[in-house]
Amino acid sequence: MVDEPAITDEEYSAVEEQLYASSLGRDFLRRRDEHMRAVALSEFHSLVSDLKASISGPAPGADRGEHVALLRRELQEMSAHIEQTRLEIAAIRPDESASNNRILQATGELDAIVSATERATSDILMSAERVQEIVERVRDEGMTDKSCDELEAQATEIFMACSFQDITGQRTTKVVNTLRYLEQRINAMVKIWGVDGFDSAEIEAEETDQRPDAALLNGPALTDGINQDDIDALMAG
């Protein structure tokens, strides 16, 4: 339970003003201030003495020199870790040239995949369209409707299969965007840690899959979507 103050701020000020009004009151206030200053100074000196004793005195239960040595070792380890981190960051982005920047390389390779599949898809579509034109012609020339329909159906299948390029293109673009984001973050770290000019050769490369496409072997996750039947149910609901 908190005690209510016996006197409010307003009441305190009013009493103080009354005291100031008389000579005796002013003398009382002066003596009170002197007393408070003396008490505060005494407390300050006592605090300083305590601090001096705790700094200069021996630490309880341990040798002071041992503490200093421990502190030095911790600082040296921290310094080594910081240095290692700077080297690791330098290894990720050794310099600005595309030939040495692994993220830029990966981004470029993915862009190349998108372009290559786009070109291939366009060629396949063109061939499927040509097949459809031929089917129309041979139908007019007397080929059976059944055979023509079968050929058309197969051309349609080719068309539909080509839609993979749109999906893989979109997913690859997402990966490219993520890589670009990572590059921005690494560049920000480089700026903060000031690792420009570090020799990345000091970092030993880990033994990993050495194939050129090793980093691209894991495809995008496919588990977070729903299928057409579920979508139909949602639309109907």
């Binding site: 068309f159 539909m160 749109d166 999906i167 979507g225 729903i226 299928n227 057409q228 979508i231």
Partner: peptide
């Protein structure tokens, strides 16, 4: 209506 890729004819 909503169609998810890949879809068929």
């Amino acid at each position: 209506n909503y169609i998810v890729k890949p879809f068929n004819a």
